[in-house]
Structures are given as C-alpha cells and as structure tokens.
C-alpha cells in the first residue's frame, strides 16, 4: 500500500465517529464571517499604522505624485533603481538621476542585490494593519525585485486601501504569488526586542496618492 493510501486509510479509521452524512462542505455553525470594520478615515488609519511599523509614509495627490516620488527617491539618491514594467509613467519623476532597471531580461540575484532600491506599485493595502499586498501584477514585477534591494518605495492610490484583512483577502487572486508586507523586515529573536531590518528591505517608504479633488490643500 502506498503511503498516500496508508494515511488516507488511517484517517478514515480515526474519523469513524464522524457521521457519514456530515458533509465536508458545510460551514460550521460557529463560523461567522469576521466583522468588517469601517474606520472613518481608512487612509489616515493606514498611514498611521504603517508608520507605527517604521515605514516612512508620504501622502500626496495625483498631480503632485511624481514630485513626491522624486523627493522620496532624492532622500536615498539611488544610482540603480528597479522599476518594473507597468509602473505608471506619469508617476515617474521628470528628472532622473538614476538608471532604471526593468528586469527584462530578468536580473540575476547578484544584480538585484547590487541595485539600490525598487520602485513599485502594489495590489492593495490594509488600513487596520498597515499592510501592503503585492501580487506580482503590472508595476510590481516578480517577488525578488522587492526583496533583494535594501530600499522599497511603494506607491499606491488611496482607493486601493481596504479597511481590514477580510476585505483585503476578498480582493486578492490566489493564483498570483502574494506577499503581505507590514513595515520593513524585523526580528524580535533577541530578548524579544524588536529590531527593524534583517533580510528584507531595511527601508520601506510608502507614497499614498489621493485624488486631486480632495486633499490637494490639506496634504501638501
């Protein structure tokens, strides 16, 4: 008997107490869907919570976006910046002091490691937890691009911010590789003291782009 068959037989034997007509599909009675939370200002909540995890957060507007991104980059002055295909051209700073790496053909790990940063979009974000979710879609590229360089600048539109984890999950396609990012990499392995920055990017900067109609004056 194969181990597969062996294990399945053992399981069937172990579950003899389960009535035959009890379906695997039926959601258990106690399984209520989690409460969907409606924070009054999800954008502000996301900004606050991401910042609590030591991500730098900039709020800007559509028309100011490229300048804000330029300013965020200027603080790091990268020489080589990974900017994957599909990153909105309108958001790219007019004046470029860096070389764009497009990952086409794919960059070798050592080349990525030598890059100074990655500039990407994301699939969506979660306000309650200050989380970004990457799904390797346009403007994000494959997972290694946002992993090896020490600096990740992620730009998202305020409309992409979901209030909470359950809402965010419903907006994701599990066929894509998904990466949830909450602040820069961190460890608490030594005396449970939190240290930001281990293997993933040690600096995470998030730029939130809001529509021009609102916020242009309040969030310069």
């Amino acid at each position: 008997m194969s181990s597969r068959q062996e294990i399945l037989t053992r399981i069937a034997g172990a579950l003899r107490d389960v009535p035959e007509d009890e379906g695997a599909e039926a959601a258990p009675a106690d399984r209520r869907s989690p409460v969907v939370r409606h924070p009054p200002d999800p954008v502000a909540l996301f900004a606050e919570r991401a910042a609590e995890y030591r991500a730098a957060v900039t709020r800007t507007t559509e028309s100011e976006a490229s300048a804000a991104i330029g300013a965020a980059l200027a603080a790091r002055s990268p020489a080589r910046l990974v900017v994957p295909h599909g990153f909105p051209e309108a958001w790219l700073p007019a004046r470029r002091t860096w070389q764009r790496l497009e990952d086409d053909p794919p960059l070798r790990p050592a080349q990525l490691d030598a890059a100074d940063g990655a500039l990407t979009t994301c699939a969506l974000a979660v306000a309650e937890t200050g989380t970004l979710v990457l799904d390797a879609g346009p403007g994000q590229g494959r997972r290694a691009l946002t992993l090896l360089p020490d600096f990740h600048l992620c730009v998202l539109r305020s409309a992409q911010i979901a209030p909470d984890v359950p809402t965010a999950l419903r907006g994701l396609d599990p066929c894509c590789p998904l990466t949830f990012v909450s602040g820069p990499s961190a460890t608490s392995d030594i005396e449970l003291e939190r240290v930001e920055g281990v293997h993933g990017p040690r600096v995470l900067h998030i730029v939130i782009v809001e529509p021009d109609s609102r916020g242009a004056d309040t969030h310069p």
Binding site: P34, R49, Y53, P106, V126, E128, T129, G130, T131, A136, R142, R143, A144, V165, P166, P174, C175, C176, P177, L178, T179, F180, V181, S182, G183, P184, S185, A186, S188, G200
Partner: peptide
C-alpha cells in the same frame, strides 16, 4: 488575524508569503 496577534502581539507580522504551485518566471 488570529495568528500574528497571538504570536508576536503584532497587528500583522512583517511578511506573509502565499504561493500556489509554481508561478511562471517568478520563484
């Protein structure tokens, strides 16, 4: 929601990876 808050006391752990089989050109 349950795991990060129970484990490290964080709202969310820094990284969660999800993959489904293999992904062309990625990983």
């Amino acid at each position: 929601q349950l795991l990060p808050r129970s484990a490290t006391g964080e709202r969310m752990n820094p990284y969660t990876s999800m993959w489904t089989g293999t992904h062309d050109g990625d990983g």
